[in-house]
Design a protein around this nucleic acid. Sequence first.
DNA 1: CGATGTTATGGCACTGCATGCCAAAATAGA
DNA 2: TCTATTTTGGCATGCAGTGCCATAACATCG
Lengths: 202, 202
Amino acid sequence: MVSAQRASGRPQVTSHGAIEAAAFELFAHRGFEATTMDDIAAVLGVSRRTLFRYYPSKNDIPWGLFDASLLRLREFLWAVPAEVPVFEAVQRAVLDFNRLDEGAIAQHRRRMALLLGTPTLQAHSVIRHAQWCRVIAEYVAARYALSPEDMLPRVVGRVCLALAMSAYEQWLEQDDGKGVEELLERSMAHLRHYLVDGDPVP
Amino acid sequence: MVSAQRASGRPQVTSHGAIEAAAFELFAHRGFEATTMDDIAAVLGVSRRTLFRYYPSKNDIPWGLFDASLLRLREFLWAVPAEVPVFEAVQRAVLDFNRLDEGAIAQHRRRMALLLGTPTLQAHSVIRHAQWCRVIAEYVAARYALSPEDMLPRVVGRVCLALAMSAYEQWLEQDDGKGVEELLERSMAHLRHYLVDGDPVP
DNA sequence: CGATGTTATGGCACTGCATGCCAAAATAGA
DNA sequence: TCTATTTTGGCATGCAGTGCCATAACATCG
């Protein structure tokens, strides 16, 4: 799909980037559900059929570069030195995964608001979340010499996801300048206090 | 929809129970995706249109009595005496929610296998899971004098869900007689050790 | 320059889920 | 029997997604 070197044959008439831009424009204007694939195709001057060759479904459009991010998460984890405790490694990786360039914040906020605020997209995100959890679980399993199908790695993956989702939720709802990273640490602190001290942290 | 006392008017030609039974039969035979609403309607001798009056979508059929279970969860939580620590209350409620009658185990296993093993249903379950989390979050919020929109209650709800899902996953994959409750406690133990001791429990 | 192979596109047909609308059927009660 | 009430069935429609195939637009080779 992404041709690094010039192949022969008919050149592509559009790109993932162009589609994403056009789609987000329409989503912001009419909402996700009310925007049809025909609408997006019309804006781009492309056939509906072609759109489905770039994105397997309408739900996949807002996710953009998620696959690449997953790869980065995996590489980050496996590059952590073995001296670092597992918990530390995972914590750092999750924070790194959600680190944002200053200029990318606004766009990322729009994207996440769409993903978290649209029922259809919430549902579809299960697949992506499962992939994300699996990356964590595989690393944890390796470090503890367990199988990725064992319970502990899966629990860790799912709990990390739970914390990350809670952090993003707060990030989208508040307007003060708290960053995702800070909120992530906050969510972890909440969980710790809940499990250990039995009393909430302020 | 569920008429307690005989109303006038045309009587209903089918029931949620009959639909569920027919649907599960077909799902088990051909799989969920390959079974169309037309198929189910044909088996019942009912029009497809009518099916959509009993269940808002095909995805909702496997969930059955979930709404009632949610009510039970809420009632259980709010009936816990205030002397019981929040953590204890939540733990007990989650365990109670997943307690099964001996005779219902086989059917529940089929149901959960379908829900957890079908991509479409996994996606759709986000809505139900969110409702479930919210019940927990509202209780935790009340006990701590917080808003259900605050971070701590939401984190607790989501983490409980993460543990419950992990327990069910294991429950479905293994064939020895471990019950869901035992697996739930196991998942919690894993999390505790991961967060506190830094080493996995055997 | 023209023939050839390669690749992406566009159009069409089709399945399936879901929804709105309305006439007709089946009941209870007057 | 007539009426009010409630459910049903059928029809039309919209939209996502998929398979199929002819065709357009390129690169390259002869």
